[in-house]
Simulated assay, not measured.
Amino acid sequence: MYCTPFRGRRTAAATIVAATALLGGATAPASAHWEATPVSAHTQTETLQPEPTSPTAYEFGETLAGLEGEELEITFLAEIIGHHQGAIEMAQLELERGTSPDIRTHAENIIADQQHQIEQFTRWLDQWYGLTPDEAKAQAPEEARQEMATMEEEMQMMHEELLAVEAGEGFDVAFVQKMIPHHSSGIIEFLEPQARAPHAELRVASTAGITTQQAQVADFRTWLAGQDGNV
């Protein structure tokens, strides 16, 4: 699915509407309290579901909607680099402990795709603004810095919970349950630069990021639905 870039400045409300459409109509209210779902044994009657998307991701999307030009690009790049690194670390755990060939292939693709974007985005930060990712984060608006800190804590929680899961089919399920909301957060973050980033390169890369992660989320949801009663 190709995402046509939006034109003009997007309002915060429009960001939520766009995110809702891209994520299949499922969003978390900004006021909701996010908590990771404990990993537990599943019975044959349970329906496996992904964990919820962090409300802070929607708040950060709204914050980006209020930024323009250089500030928009710097703030987005400061966040997405760390966000991608978190996905890579979870994918590496899947390769160490997972057993599903399909999910392991997705993990390999996540590592390759997101490492490429990390290198690309880090290079652009330096070329365009003379900043490292840490320097870019320090220049972000205070509200954005607070939201980034919250999302970093949530990613660390996800990683720690995966570390506690034993290798095997159950690990595949736990990985997918966490990667779906992680990718959903990334899609939300890509919306504003896809629409309004001053550099065309970043608009194109954001569109690619949305398309890739949407496809993986769809595959993960289909796979997870097929695991009911098997774990």
Rank of each mutant, 00 (worst) to 15 (best):
P50G: 06
E68G: 03
F76E: 00
T53V: 15
L48K: 00
F60K: 02
E70H: 05
T47H: 09
I74A: 01
G66M: 11
G61P: 03
T45C: 12
L48I: 06
G66N: 10
E71P: 02
T56F: 12
G61T: 02
E73Y: 08
A57S: 13
S54R: 10
T56K: 11
E51G: 13
G69C: 00
L48Y: 01
G66I: 10
E46Y: 12
E51Q: 07
I74Q: 08
A57F: 04
L67F: 03
P55L: 07
F76P: 00
A57R: 04
L77H: 09
F60P: 00
E62Y: 01
T47P: 01
T63G: 00
Q49F: 04
L72K: 04
E68K: 10
S54A: 15
F60W: 03
L64R: 06
L64A: 05
A65G: 06
A65M: 13
T75I: 08
E71F: 05
T56L: 11
L48T: 00
G69D: 10
I74F: 02
T47I: 13
T56Q: 15
E73K: 07
Y58C: 08
Y58N: 13
I74M: 07
G66P: 09
P55G: 09
T75D: 08
E62C: 13
L72N: 04
L48W: 01
Q49R: 11
F76Y: 11
E68L: 14
E73M: 14
G66K: 11
S54N: 13
A65T: 12
L72F: 05
E68I: 10
Q49M: 08
T45K: 13
S54C: 12
P55D: 10
T53W: 04
E46M: 15
L77Q: 10
L72R: 03
I74T: 10
E68R: 15
S54K: 07
E62P: 00
E70I: 03
T75K: 01
F76V: 01
E59G: 04
E46F: 13
I74R: 11
E68P: 02
G66H: 13
G61S: 04
E68M: 11
T63R: 09
P52H: 00
E62M: 08
T75F: 05
G66V: 13
A57D: 14
L77R: 06
G69W: 02
L72G: 04
I74P: 02
L48V: 01
T47N: 08
L72Y: 07
E68C: 11
L67V: 06
Q49E: 14
E51Y: 02
E62D: 08
L48D: 01
L67Q: 05
T47V: 12
Y58E: 14
E46I: 13
